[in-house]
Each structure stands twice: as C-alpha cells, then as structure tokens.
Design a protein around this nucleic acid. Structure first.
Length: 130
RNA sequence: UCAGGGGGCCCGAGGCAGCCGCGUGCGCUUUCGUGUGUAAACAUGGGGGGCGCGAGGAAAGUCCGGGCUCCACGAAACAAGGGUGGCGGGUAACGCCCGCCGGUCGCCUGCAAGGGCGGCAAGGGAAAGUGCCACAGAGAGCAGACCGCCGAUGGCUCCCGGAAACGGGGCACAGGCAAGGGUGAAAGGGUGCGGUAAAAGCGCACCGGGGGGUCGGCAACGGCAACCGCAUGGCAAACCCCACCCGGAGCAAGGCCGAAUAGGGGCCGCGCGUCCCGGAUCAUGUCCGGGACAGGGGAGUUUCGCCCCGAGCGGCCCGGGUUGGCUGCUAGAGCGCCGGAGCAAUCCGGCGACCAGAUGAAUGGCUGCCACCGUGCGGCAGGUCCCUUCGGGAUACCGUGUACGGAGACAGAACCCGGCUUAUGACGGCCCCCUGACGUU
C-alpha cells in the first residue's frame, strides 16, 4: 500500500464532507475513496501566516503523516489535515500522539459533533463503514 | 594608539554527527508487468540500490530598465498621452552607478581674503505667456508711508531784536525722506565713508549682481581686467515652454498532444400532412417562431374526456471549448581565480567549474554534541591575595567543569537578468567624521 497525494480541488471539497476530528494543532478529515488506497492532503490557509510559516507547517504535517499513515491510517480513505493557529511550532511528538488518537477515533467512525454552527448535512454516514 | 558616539560598504545568514525522508539528473540492478520480435534483444513502466546537485541577500514590494514570446504596424515625421531633466563617463538599457561642477549646511584652519574635510538635495527655463503669494502689515508686483525723521524751500493772525530790509527762534500747514522701529517666508542689493534740512547708488571704496569680452576646461563651469549705479522677488512638486526618451500585452506569454461525455457546423441517405398568422430576406423556400385541424402514441378493450408526440434518424467529416499531459524551463548582459587598463563606476584577456527547476508546489523532520548570552554551584589547573609548617585558605577577574534559563532575525525561487525601495538578530573585516585620554614633535 503506497501513499499518494491529493492534487485535485474536488477531492479536498469532498473530504470536507467526511469525518471531522479537531485537535489543538490541526483538524483531521477522513473519507472513504472507493479503493484509491491511502491518500493524504494538507491545507494551510493564509489566515495561519505568511508563506514561510505555512510551508513549514506543511512540511511538518507531511512528516507526521508519512510516519503514521502506513500503520495507523484508514485503508482506502482520503486523509486531509487542516492547519490551525495552535499548530505553529507545536511540539512534534505531542502532535504525533494527537494524530494517532484522532486516527483511532476516525477508525471507530466517530467524529466531532457537527453542531448547529457548521451543518454538514447528512454526509456523516461516510464514516459509518464496517 | 586606545575608548565612546554617528555614518557608509563588504562577507556570512550557526557548525558537526546519527537515523528517517523529499525533488531532480546520470549510471547500476531486477525470477516483475506491457509491447515488438522465431530468438537474441530493444523500447517502456514498476521495484531495489548508488553517486552528483538542491532557496535569498533581500527569493519580498512589483517601482524602473532590458532579454524572450505573441499581437498590431511600409518607413519616417507630426499630434495626443506618459516619463526624464547640471556636465562628462559606465552600461544591453535605465529614473541605476561612478567622477566632476554649481548650490547649501556643519566642522577645522586663517587677521582677513581664502583654503581643507564631511554631509544634504528631482539641480533645464521665472525679460514667452497665464496664474498664485494666505495671515499679519501702511505697502506683496503699475510697490508703499503706520510710528518715525526732516521741514532746506514755501507758509504762519507765534516770540525776540530792528525804522526798514532782514536776522535769530518757534509751529508742523504745504511739502520732502525712507535711515531707524514695526509686520511678514519674502519689503526691491549689503557694509563703510562722504553727502544732506533729513535722506537716498546721490557720489566713492570693497563685496554682491548684470550683459558682453578674454583666458582655461570635452563640458557643466571657473579665473581675469575693464564697463554698467543696479535695469524685471518667490513658486515650474500650478498651468506652461524647451530638449531628449517611449507601440501594446505578458510565461496564466507562446507552441504541441489527445480520450470519454455533452454540445456546434458541413455533406450524404432515408423520412418530413393541410391551412393560417408573424419574423428574416431583393426574392424563392425542405428557413425561423406560433396556432388550428387531420394524424400517431399512452393508461387492458370500445366511446367520450385527459396527457404526450407532431420532425427527425443514421453514417462520414471538420473546427472549437473544459479538465489533463508535454514543451517554453534554465549555460547565463551568469559564477570563481589570476593578470591588465581606469581616480572610480566599469571594461578587457586567460584559466576553471556546471551551479535549483518544483507545480496542492521538492530543498525537510527528529535526536545528540559543540558554539553565543545570563544566573547559580564547584574551587579542578593557572594568575592574584592572605596565613605561612614541604602545606592550607579566599577569589568579585580570566580559563574551565557542571546545572538551569534565554536568544537564534527578516524571510521561501515559480521564465530569466540589471537596478531601486523596504524588512532584518548575533559575530567579523574595511573606510570616513566627531569627542575624550595618553604618548611624541
């Protein structure tokens, strides 16, 4: 099983409808991709900081995912990490632990409650696979 | 020479090791897949492993100048619009850089005239024209008279002397003046002497200024002597005038490749009921839009009612779009070293190396040690000080060991160069100016 990178905007938009697990440094989105293998993508918006800050965050996220996904990743799922302001220079080992827990929750099909604030319209069933 | 302060330029943008990774180029390897082939083998894709290279001085802002690409265009000139603005040099070019000139500010030197050093500034034209110069002030562009000065000359129904002529004094009416005060960013040359009733380039000397001459300089400009009594203040970053420069858009430029699906156009074959209205057309109609009737179909059948269809279908060809891929794409007005020319910017010659090409965007992640700063502890070696019994003790300075804490900037190539501007922490190196101390003359 090899890792591949998401490059299409449509894939990112689709992942937005998947299971959502938020941590201090990042938000993990997972969504089945019907047999495409383990794929991942990273989103860091301009709100986080300038290009230097954003690129460094992406590099560290890539390293986290490269270490975790082969053993802890969900097979045939897309994984998208969204950077949060709390993730700037957050301790690397701490974030590795948080990522492991978030992946475990996603594996159980559980995400954060969507709440009335940001409705996700029924796509929640995407995480309810056997 | 040292210390402190200010300014400018250059280098560098922590180092090493271990483990795990990323991008790219080139070899190697493979009982792997696919294609061609009788085979050998070749091509291509995948796996494994090796070697080389892999962010910046600003990669930033996108403010100028170019290369390159496409578009437009006979050439050139003019007009419009925009830009630049002392002179010379450098450059592919520039609004950039270097040198110089003039201006201005500060410091030093000198009796002075002058000279030296450093800094600053978009520095063509104000007798081509137009416009503006607030407030204050008497007066601000045909200059002007508030306070003031004078009142020689003329005047006075003033005072004294005198017979008178007149003399002396007074007044400040006419009038004269612009020195001094005052206003202002700016008041129409400055200082001094003469002169005068008081004054004034009214006269003179020096300084400043002017146009012409002459000498020097490639030039900006400078020197000199004579002449002119001074004859037109500032703003051109207000319009404007003069000289010179400029076609536009940008790598999302531009070129190439091609699938599925949907849609467009053309041709051919078959098919396409009648009538009416409108549109388009010079006109015809197998043109376009709408309507009525006939016709066909649907709900099991028939009648009535309702709904739908009422012109396409098939084949071939063509061009375009979306997404995607390839290319442009990195060897260059480049880099390093040496030599030469030049005050310098820069240029010339020789030698050498190949030095990022990503595209949801590589150039990294983690750990340890060292290096920088601060604090505490140990006193381990040295220095210093104390007691002095070969030894012991203290230690604020320096080395060093250790523990804890801190700092580690600005910032990430996106077609490529030359500049400018802006942002930037620590340590270095060089230069200039100012201040202080010491030493020498």
């Amino acid at each position: 099983m090899t890792l591949s990178v998401l490059t299409k905007r449509a894939d990112f938009l689709a992942a937005n409808a998947g299971t959502r697990n938020a941590r201090a440094g990042f938000v993990l989105l997972t969504r089945p991709n019907s047999g495409q293998g383990i794929r991942f993508g990273i989103t860091v918006t301009k709100k986080i900081g300038n290009a230097v800050v954003r690129n460094r965050m992406k590099r560290r996220f890539r390293e986290l995912l490269r270490a975790a996904l082969p053993t802890l990743g969900l097979p045939d799922h897309d994984h998208v990490l969204i950077g949060r302001a709390g993730g700037i220079e957050r301790d690397f080992h701490l974030m590795a632990e948080e990522l492991a827990r978030a992946l475990a929750r996603a594996r159980e099909g559980r995400g954060d409650p969507s709440g009335g604030r940001r409705p996700r319209k029924g796509d929640r069933k995407g995480g309810n696979r056997p």
